[in-house]
Amino acid sequence: MPGLIGRKIGMTQIFDDDGKAVGVTVLEVGPCAVVQIKTVERDGYEAVQLGFGRVKEGRTRKPAAGHAARAGLDYVPRVLAEFDFEGEELELGQELTVDMFDVGSRVNVTGTTKGRGFQGVVKRHGFGGGRGSHGGTSILRAPGSIGAGTDPSRVIKGRKMAGRMGGTQRMAMSRKIIRVDAEKNLLIVQGSVPGGRNNLVMVRPGR
């Protein structure tokens, strides 16, 4: 089972059998068409390329349309992604749906975190900041000393400093599947998932 491409709908909460509120994330996953199957003989590795969504007919490019047509598709997927794949046979043009996941199993969800722009050390790394009295108004959110003395006379690599925050790829591992709605292509997983609403996510089987 390779995985599926989808998008994050948002977060909500549901109540379990014991009446406890459980925070969950709702994902719209699939259907994903098999666009290309890569083999060791031809490509040097095994993988399957899946497509998600549809590009408007007037916005399609000829190379993309030809690539999709070779798989027997009459549309161009909006997103293409590769998944490691070994095992059961797949056919070009075959559609994979959310039915491939079972309630209670675990999945790994990869997404892009929310971009926060350029931030200081207090927000980016949780620094406590400087003193608020005795003339310390200019050092409230300053990072403080970053040097390492005469030896080695340079800033050590990896020092926590101000910089670009967020907008990086992260994986939420071992999220438990709470519900599967095959009619609406919805996958409800326990806990949070990287990214904001409508962000693209990759869902792979976990442990």
Rank of each mutant, 00 (worst) to 15 (best):
K157D: 08
G10N: 03
G30H: 13
F101W: 02
K38M: 07
H125P: 08
V98I: 15
G136W: 06
G136P: 12
A47P: 10
R164K: 13
M202Y: 15
D151H: 14
A68T: 06
V40A: 12
V76Q: 01
G163M: 01
P205V: 09
V35T: 09
F83C: 00
G130P: 09
P77H: 05
V189H: 01
F15N: 05
V155D: 01
D102G: 14
P143C: 11
K114A: 09
E183I: 14
E95A: 11
G191F: 07
G66R: 15
G93C: 02
V122H: 13
N108K: 07
V203H: 00
T12A: 13
K62V: 09
Q49T: 12
R159F: 11
T97N: 07
M173G: 00
G126Y: 15
K38R: 12
Q190W: 06
Y75H: 14
T168E: 11
F83N: 00
F118R: 15
F127C: 15
L50K: 08
F15M: 07
G6C: 02
E86M: 06
F118W: 13
L92D: 05
G44M: 03
A142R: 03
E91F: 07
K8E: 04
M161W: 13
A64F: 01
K160A: 07
R179T: 05
V189N: 05
K8N: 00
R78K: 10
V79L: 02
G117S: 01
R42G: 00
M202D: 03
A172C: 10
T168R: 04
Q49H: 11
V121R: 08
I178R: 04
P2H: 08
R159A: 11
V55A: 04
D99S: 15
A21N: 12
L4N: 06
L186D: 12
R154E: 12
V35Q: 08
V193F: 05
G128K: 15
D84I: 09
G130A: 11
T113K: 14
P31Q: 07
R54A: 00
N108I: 03
F52W: 14
F85Q: 15
L4W: 02
K20Y: 12
T150M: 15
V107F: 11
L80E: 06
G115W: 04
S153N: 11
V109C: 09
K56A: 08
R141W: 08
V107W: 11
G23H: 05
E57W: 08
T113F: 11
P194S: 12
A33T: 02
V55D: 04
A21G: 09
G66W: 14
M165G: 01
R159P: 06
T112H: 07
G44S: 10
P143E: 06
E41C: 02
A182F: 03
Q36G: 03
R42L: 02
D16R: 12
G120F: 08
K184E: 07
V203M: 04
